[in-house]
Simulated scan of single mutants.
Amino acid sequence: MASAVSTGEMVAAVLADLVGRIEQRLPAAVEDEYDGVHRLRTSVRRLRTALSVFGHHLRGRPTKALRRDLGDLGALLGVPRDLEVRADLLDDLLERLELGDLRADLVDPLRLEHGGAHRTFAAWSGGAAAADLRATLAEWSAGPPLKRPDKPAEEVASGLVLGQADVTLGLVPDVLAEASPEALHELRKKARRLRHTAEAVTKEPVALLGADVVDLGAAGSAIQSRLGDHRDALLLAEHVERTAPAMAPYSAVAATARELACEALAGLPDDVERLAEARDRLR
């Protein structure tokens, strides 16, 4: 996309691309193909992020309604996806600990629960709510409800990316001091939002900004990934402690999961420094 395009053209291109990804990825998610639910959930999250980040250039009422509906879909997808992640992580952990005989007690119930959660999503996908959402998405893809569309896109995009970087880095001192699961999760969400914003304006079909913004998005992605690994391991430990007998070898599984959660945080200060350096290069 040429650098002289307007903000309206940029926003319309980003939204149409994300709507297309959702439509493309829906069938695989309904069929529960490998990574299908995860890919669809990611696309839904990216579209919600775009609606929020570009909110000053979209009419408020329809944008709020679409974000709400996408949030409902994201929550519906989140149940089977989180169960899938937990089962896979637990399966790997049992293999590492040579405790494969515990799979029937620990992993199989999660797989069974995942199947039920996926069937709930699949049933939704064939209903009226899904049809209404897809019709709304098609309307937005054809022509989103823009406002203030004539501003130069490159200037607006740069400001949005820097704003997300500032928000993310602004959380860091309190998060590192507190280091609570809730604070770390909030930082993860902000880093993910930064990543999605940077990628929206550096990748096709927009591709307005260059390598420095790519680096900024990569730094946000590193924080998101690290904190995601931490959260997944911590939630796994809590799940085992809550549902399994308080005895060996189950306690060893929970303890190892907590060790993995701690290990995931070891490089966080370095990731934050990388993000700060990438942000400063754009000043």
Rank of each mutant, 00 (worst) to 15 (best):
188 R>E: 02
194 L>M: 08
85 V>Y: 13
152 P>L: 03
120 T>F: 07
183 A>S: 06
207 A>H: 09
129 A>E: 12
111 R>D: 10
123 A>I: 12
150 D>K: 14
118 H>E: 09
203 K>Y: 13
112 L>T: 15
135 A>W: 09
111 R>L: 15
177 A>R: 13
163 G>N: 11
109 P>Q: 06
157 A>Y: 02
138 A>L: 08
132 D>H: 11
92 D>C: 14
192 R>N: 10
174 D>R: 14
101 D>M: 14
172 V>F: 05
93 L>W: 05
105 D>A: 15
139 E>K: 11
116 G>F: 08
141 S>D: 13
160 L>T: 03
169 L>H: 04
152 P>R: 04
199 E>R: 13
142 A>H: 13
117 A>D: 04
99 L>A: 01
103 R>K: 13
127 G>I: 03
125 S>M: 07
85 V>M: 15
90 L>N: 01
136 T>H: 11
176 L>D: 01
161 V>E: 07
180 S>T: 06
106 L>F: 03
150 D>F: 10
88 D>L: 14
114 H>T: 12
168 T>Q: 01
165 A>F: 01
146 L>M: 06
141 S>L: 09
198 A>M: 05
175 V>G: 00
140 W>K: 02
107 V>K: 00
153 A>V: 01
189 K>A: 14
208 L>V: 08
174 D>K: 10
197 T>R: 07
91 D>Y: 11
176 L>R: 01
123 A>G: 12
163 G>Q: 09
101 D>E: 15
161 V>N: 04
154 E>S: 13
209 L>I: 06
144 P>E: 05
86 R>E: 10
129 A>I: 05
110 L>C: 02
200 A>C: 11
116 G>L: 12
178 E>M: 05
106 L>S: 03
138 A>C: 08
116 G>N: 09
200 A>L: 07
137 L>Q: 08
193 R>P: 04
198 A>S: 13
190 K>H: 15
198 A>I: 03
210 G>K: 06
101 D>L: 15
131 A>N: 07
194 L>A: 08
177 A>S: 13
122 A>R: 08
206 V>P: 05
117 A>Y: 05
192 R>I: 04
176 L>W: 00
188 R>A: 01
113 E>G: 07
123 A>S: 14
102 L>H: 07
188 R>C: 02
155 E>T: 14
140 W>D: 02
100 G>A: 13
123 A>H: 13
196 H>W: 11
108 D>I: 07
85 V>D: 14
115 G>E: 11
96 R>E: 15
115 G>M: 09
206 V>L: 12
200 A>N: 10
191 A>F: 02
179 A>P: 02
112 L>D: 15
196 H>N: 15
92 D>R: 15
137 L>P: 03
180 S>Y: 02
137 L>C: 06
159 G>V: 01
112 L>R: 15
122 A>C: 04
109 P>H: 07
121 F>M: 01
90 L>H: 00
144 P>H: 06
157 A>E: 00
148 R>V: 12
164 Q>D: 10
181 P>H: 03
181 P>C: 02
117 A>I: 03
113 E>H: 12
188 R>T: 04
128 A>C: 08
191 A>P: 00
96 R>N: 11
187 L>G: 00
114 H>G: 12
188 R>W: 00
87 A>Q: 00
104 A>K: 13
150 D>M: 11
135 A>M: 10
204 E>M: 10
171 L>Q: 05
99 L>T: 04
191 A>Q: 00
203 K>N: 12
